[in-house]
Design a protein around this nucleic acid. Sequence first.
DNA 1: CGGTTTTGACCAGCGC
DNA 2: GCGCTGGTCAAAACCG
Length: 289
Amino acid sequence: MVVQLSDTPIIMEGKVPLNLLETHAEYEPHPVETLKEELQRVREENSTLRLMLEVLNSKCTKLETHVQEINKAKHKGISSNHIGSVTVPNLDTNKTPRLEFPTAKKPSQIFVRTHPKDDSLRVKDGYQWRKYGQKVTKDNASPRAYFRCSMAPICPAKKKVQRCIHDKSILVATYDGEHNHGALHESSSSTPKGLPVANKLPLTSKPNDKETMNIDLALCGWSQTDKKRHCEDAMQQRDQGSNIKIEEYVSSLVKDPGFTMSLAEAVARTITGQQKQQGLNLNLDLQEE
DNA sequence: CGGTTTTGACCAGCGC
DNA sequence: GCGCTGGTCAAAACCG
């Protein structure tokens, strides 16, 4: 199976890796009807995943177009690789870009979609934050949480996190101050150096791992309806051209081979997990699908 | 036991 | 000066 995301292919040779398809000899064989139902369910899931990939692909294309426009503008003497508040990695060089999270003197915002049921105000951005306050503000019923960077003894970086007033599943993180330390928090030593830390999903994470829920595209542990709803949301956003910052951030994630590989792995793991639950050992040939 | 989170109290800035 | 609001402090609770 070859998943092509723009120019960044994820290659999953042949079938789902053997270690993801553990055998369950202890289970009794399933009646044909049950197996048919399961097959149908897996097909539906595949179509959902396909939809997700389409969304990712379209965002990739969009980003590429945008980068090309920026490059053209650069050639015309307009020097800027900033879109909104998030710095776009330099894609026209071989250097591994670091996604610069807003640490400028001027406060800036990022938007992160979370699981609808996840009511914590946590935004995984690679830094370690210590919450020092929470307040309900006048213009938004959702409480605003105040965080300070705890990675260095004296780091002036702060952030405020509050749910979007219009969409409770979106967290708005406002960054203030600069980090006075270089190293970002490395959650996994297996991830390639130089990659944006925010782009890294833990390769060993379970589908229901809360950590992965903080990233927009970490849909792997979601229910079927959740996935569909979010895909529809994303499609709608694409069509309406709204929430540009989210799209740009997501696009930068998608561009990262490490992220896309992790996503693909998580998807495969999810399918396997569900098989485990129901005691099935379907040898899915995704290439055929 | 040390680090983190929670939460009520406190403070500063601003408009009236 | 007073009230409102956003931001911060700090003690207690919580957690690994």
